[in-house]
């Protein structure tokens, strides 16, 4: 059953950037958007399982560092080949300066 997990402090993530968060044998990516909202997706690219944390956040898009495939990290939608499979997303919220994700 999904539960809210304390993932990091809001200050741990720069604006328009992401960090990796590992929990219970799984890896996630947590994003801070240009308008200071937080989002969470799976941490590995759906193309070849590369960690997205080394990629580039541009507005609401995360670009995979290996093949430049792109996802909209708000919805997980695959936006640019070679990625074809959408990224799983998870609810995220901020409480008392902490980012919580529901996984």
């Amino acid at each position: 059953m999904a539960q809210w997990i304390d993932a990091c402090a809001t200050d741990d993530i720069d604006e328009e950037d992401l960090i990796r968060f590992d929990h219970d044998g799984r890896t996630f990516a947590i994003y801070r958007s240009p308008d200071d909202e937080f989002f969470c997706t799976d941490g590995l690219c759906t193309h070849e399982q590369v960690h997205l944390v080394d990629g580039l956040v541009m507005d609401y898009v995360i670009e995979c560092p290996k093949h430049n495939g792109q996802f909209d990290y708000r919805t997980g939608e695959a936006k640019r080949a070679p990625v074809c499979v959408n990224l799983a997303t998870y609810p995220a919220k901020v409480e008392n300066g902490r980012v919580l994700i529901e996984v």
Partner: peptide, 13 residues
Amino acid sequence: PVVWRWSHARHHT
């Protein structure tokens, strides 16, 4: 352009 996009992705992998 489609074939070679995939071919080049493999070259990088």
